[in-house]
Simulated assay, not measured.
Amino acid sequence: MKAHTTLLQHKPPIKVRMGKVFKKMRVHWPLYVLLLPPIIYVAIFSYVPMYGVLLAFKQYQPLKGIIGSPWVGFSHFEQFFSSPSSWRIIKNTVLISLYSLVAGFPLPILLAVALNEVRKHWFKKTVQMVTYAPYFISSVVLVGIVMQVLDPRIGLVNQFIQFFGGEPINFMGETQFFRSIYVWMGIWQGTGYGAIIYLAALAGVSKDLQEASIIDGASKVRRIWHVDLPSIRPTIVILLVLSIGGIMGVGFETIYLMQNNLNLSVSEIIATYVYKVGLINSNYGFSTAIGLFNSMINLILLIIANFTARKLTDSGLW
């Protein structure tokens, strides 16, 4: 108790401590200037719009504004969950997200490990360029290419099927093909770019551990399994946690461009539904409620995934 009292007595006054902080800020002001633009960006585009969450609990009337619009409580949420299509939309969102996560998450790791083992510089750079390039294709162009390739009349795939005596298939109109087309199109576009982070992590793997494993006679596969992958495990865990936390956030643009009346039963997701209800039908309160529900699910999944990762691997976001 005496030690605690003595420590409190010798603790500098708050003015002295704040003076030291401001002194350090004056010395390192260029670093704070560099930090200022992202802080302003986050404040404007992430925190200021949170005021609009009130729309989820109001019957929005433009003339009265957000504050003046009548309060309706949870009626928008009740309306959504009582709708016959709500659970189908949620199921479509979850299934597409899980498919993308299971099929797409390991591939950038495998590509990065494979590229890390390549010793011919020209070959490594060529593979990197070829695999990174699709990431910079816009969603509109990408979907256009896929539609042309899968077209029932002139598409390359159907031409190949017909060459072997098969019947042409309307891939974009068959519900059983939609999820696979979307997921593998995204994997083709994003795998090369996603491998960049893992390549950077692999560059930091201890050379001493590599040399020790070689001296011990470990094969290349064993070195990857026992040295490379454990070394980049924190990076893998953090990206996996972030992926799980965004499992309800399926991309809007690509799905919307691929939608048609034939595949709508499996392609309608929360993002496209919010767009149609909120912007096209001008039901802003209802669409905000759905978006808020989606964000809350993502937040809960992020917390659970991070807690689990901390328990199992001692790595996580916080």
Rank of each mutant, 00 (worst) to 15 (best):
R26Q: 06
M1N: 05
R119Y: 06
Y132E: 08
G204E: 06
L63P: 00
F307G: 02
V113T: 15
S219H: 07
I290Y: 00
Y51E: 11
Y47T: 08
N170F: 06
D216L: 01
Y135G: 07
P49L: 03
M296V: 15
M296I: 15
I238Y: 06
Y99E: 02
Y51Q: 12
W225V: 14
V227M: 05
G68T: 04
G104R: 09
M296H: 09
I40T: 02
A112P: 03
K220L: 09
I187F: 05
P152E: 14
G249D: 06
L55V: 02
S180M: 12
S75L: 05
T272Y: 01
A3V: 04
A200Q: 09
I137N: 00
L115Y: 15
L229A: 11
N298Q: 13
H226Q: 12
T288V: 09
Y47L: 15
W225H: 13
F136D: 02
L156Q: 10
I89T: 12
G217I: 01
A133E: 06
N298W: 03
I39E: 04
W188D: 02
G245E: 04
A218F: 00
P108Y: 06
L36V: 10
N306R: 11
T191N: 04
S219A: 07
K276L: 12
I181S: 04
N92T: 09
W318Y: 09
D228E: 10
L302K: 02
N283S: 13
N260A: 01
E268K: 12
K15V: 15
G285K: 03
Q259T: 08
P106Q: 04
I161H: 00
N261L: 08
F74Q: 08
E253S: 09
M1G: 12
L229I: 15
F81D: 05
R223C: 07
R88S: 12
V146C: 03
I181G: 00
H121W: 07
I214K: 11
S315I: 05
R26P: 00
L95Y: 07
T131Q: 06
K23N: 11
H226C: 10
I181M: 00
I244Y: 05
S295D: 00
V72P: 00
G192C: 11
F178P: 13
I280D: 13
F252Q: 00
G285D: 11
K276V: 14
V118Q: 06
G251A: 09
Y193E: 13
G19P: 11
L101T: 01
Q148N: 14
T5G: 06
